[in-house]
């Protein structure tokens, strides 16, 4: 599904990613953990195609394609989805409009017929119910006046609607109370399948109680310094990031 090799990326001339290597096969769920400022969001955004970040070397292959060569919208249509750490508020654009434009651009790209108003409404109601989002939120401006938890649920709603092959969830758990966390986790678990892969970026292992990953990686100082199974998350929880950082430095 995704093969990241020796990825280096700068922001404003400052190196952030310093040689990331990661292999994700179809159907796998990977967690990426790490201290604040270690480059987790940078990695997520580079995958989604944000051009504030300059990739200086390395390669990313996604389903046989050169991901770095694709515009962000093409990546989305090819099935890459980023749930943002800080979803943007867009006054004046209704959630409904965005969702419809998004699904239809993806469908068009895949050569499937676009949904008409009624089909779309039926689908979106179903998905909104899944993340327990009240319908009124669909008619509001994108994320405007949403609480932190509502914004994150809106990200999951978009993900559920677009049915991506590769989802990257950037700290979708942070700032959520336990109920909201369960709703988000349930949304993710419903989407989890043999055909899809996921990357969960998280600071805490709490999320991993609800979404059990196949692999856990620790990103620190712009590199993956340690990888393991789900038990690594627990170990990190007990010993802190200092523990792996010390080991890596040693």
């Amino acid at each position: 599904m995704l093969s990241i090799k020796n990825l280096h990326a700068d922001i404003e001339g400052k190196p952030i990613l310093k040689g990331v290597n990661l292999e994700i096969r179809t159907g796998e769920v990977h967690a990426i953990m790490g201290p604040n400022g270690s480059g987790k969001s940078t990695l997520a955004n580079v995958l989604a195609g944000r051009d504030d970040y300059e990739v200086t070397s390395g390669s990313v292959e996604y389903r046989g394609m050169d991901l770095l060569d694709m515009e962000p919208e093409i990546r989305a249509r090819e099935g890459v989805f980023l749930a943002f750490q800080y979803p943007v508020e867009i006054p004046g654009v209704t959630n409904m409009y965005l969702l419809k434009a998004a699904i239809n651009s993806v469908r068009k790209h895949r050569g499937v017929e676009e949904l008409d108003a009624r089909e779309f409404l039926k689908l979106i109601k179903e998905k909104a119910a899944m993340v327990e989002m009240k319908q009124e939120f669909l008619y509001r401006s994108v994320n405007q006046g949403f609480s932190g938890g509502e914004k994150k649920r809106n990200e999951i709603l978009q993900m559920a609607l677009l049915e991506p092959h590769l989802s990257v969830l950037d700290e979708t758990d942070s700032g959520l109370d336990i109920d909201a966390l369960k709703i988000v986790a349930q949304g993710v678990n419903l989407l989890r399948s043999e055909q899809r892969s996921m990357v969960l970026v998280t600071h805490y292992q709490r999320l991993l109680d609800y979404i059990v990953p196949d692999y856990v990686h620790v990103l620190a100082g712009g590199r993956i310094i340690r990888s393991g199974g789900k038990e690594l998350a627990l170990e990190l929880e007990q010993k802190g990031y200092g523990w792996v950082e010390d080991q890596a430095a040693a």
Binding site: A48, G49, R50, D52, E71, P72, E73, R75, A76, R77, F81, L82, F84, P87, V88, I90, V93, L98, A101, A102, S105, V106, H109, V142, Q158, L162
Partner: peptide, 15 residues
Amino acid sequence: DQNSLFYLRSRGIDE
């Protein structure tokens, strides 16, 4: 706003 622009593009909407 560049953040909004990227957000929309990341949902498949062309630039």
